[in-house]
Write a protein that binds this DNA or RNA. Structure first.
Lengths: 232, 232
DNA sequence: TCAACCCTTTGGTCGAGACCGAAAGGTGCG
DNA sequence: CGCACCTTTCGGTCTCGACCAAAGGGTTGA
């Protein structure tokens, strides 16, 4: 790289509350049409168009035309990592109203963090992976690297293949609700994929919160001991 | 934590170019008086006062009154980590003028990154630590944890004690010029302290770039093989 | 081909905040 | 004590950009 990084450029893109809401919405790693992001941010479609352009110019999101709509997604895992790091030092937004409180509980219980599970569920799963010796623990509260690729717990979860590539297999991601790290990287993605595949959890519309299905709750309780999803 | 993180709040503080310059200036982990930051950002003292207050309100910097001046420093290692993550996805600022090019070379050669060495020097030192088996390598390009606390290389560098505490001893920090990780955490700090203590390198005024002393260059060349600091 | 739908463009309003000069407030030094 | 120095406060200007309504363009499905 030449020259100093243009910190202000990237920060300006995130500085507008409406754009920040949009970024948090695409932090689930999914593609979202612009109209939906407009709703999430509480602005008119015309305004959303401007905002998405700004985010795309800054390299934060990528746009893919699909028919008469344009799908917006986070442009990469490095962006997700940077946003996560920022949320770690960001103050908490005060909870507004009953709907806000419910949304908050749902997010704390189980949600996606880009492409891996987070919240109480993500942390509990991570603790189990460490306990089983699948992932080692460098120091208390610090995730290490993958130790075993075969283990009954992985079979139980339905994680069969770990795609190899440039991407680290195990990465630690600090959970902003639990204040403890959860597993990200290729393993984190594989776990989330398995949970979704077998319908232990399902995605909710318009939010990163995950719904734990009854059968999923049962099987997760089996695996994680006393872990139980909160109501709603 | 309650509620969603207020991403926009923290981003807004960094969105102003003058404030971003100030943050990059205090990224060396040192304390800087406000007047100096005003110079670094190219604004009047009155403006700098406003900016520093904004950064302090956002929790990015801490202010400590000292006599007739007020010293500004980064408020913590977590903030440094977030800023680093942002610089990884930030576009490069175009280099302006001869002075800019020289500053650029100096920064690429050797600089501080919060409290540890970075740039070509930081990466070369890290490679040596990995080669000596002091720090292990999880996957190519990913730093692991501390393996040995005693080694001739550590003696040669003058690193005697590694302060234990809540802080991770070894942390990986992606270098934005070299695109490879260098050692951060307590070990990174200990190495920088040793280099400064024995005058292998000295701090420059008003910049994070480090000056490698002649004797330092000689001893570093001994340790790192063909490593040599660039001119200026 | 037409209508419905999603998005963008245009043009205009409006508020936020970045900036500075001048003057005032503290602090240290002689 | 008084001057020099660093910083803050105040008042004012001015630019930037967030926002929307209305109109236009492109796509899909009937």
């Amino acid at each position: 790289m030449n020259g100093e990084p243009d910190l202000a450029r990237i920060a300006r893109a995130l500085a507008e509350p409406a754009r920040a809401d949009m970024v948090l919405a695409v932090l689930d790693g999914q593609q979202h049409p612009i109209g939906e992001l407009a709703g999430a941010a509480g602005v008119a479609p015309a305004t959303a168009t401007d905002h998405v352009r700004e985010l795309a110019d800054a390299g934060i999101v990528a746009i893919e035309p699909r028919g008469r709509q344009r799908l917006v997604a986070l442009s990469g895992a490095d962006v997700a990592r940077a946003i996560e790091a920022l949320t770690e030092i960001a103050p908490a937004k005060p909870v507004r109203g009953l709907a806000g409180a419910e949304r908050n509980i749902a997010l704390r219980t189980a949600r996606t963090c880009y492409d891996h599970p987070a919240g109480a569920l993500g942390v509990a799963l991570t603790a189990r992976l460490v306990e089983d010796g699948i992932v080692d623990e460098l120091e208390p509260g610090t995730i290490g690297n993958l130790v075993r690729t075969e283990h009954p717990t992985l079979d139980y979860l339905g994680v069969t293949t770990l795609p190899a590539g440039r991407r680290p297999v195990v990465r630690s991601c600090l959970d902003w609700t639990e204040r403890r790290p959860h597993v990200a990287g290729a393993l984190g993605r594989a776990v989330l994929d398995a949970l979704l595949e077998d319908k232990w959890v399902t995605r909710r519309r318009d939010t990163r919160a995950l719904r734990v299905t009854p059968s999923g709750a049962e099987r997760l309780g089996e695996l994680l001991g006393d872990w139980k999803p909160a109501e709603t």
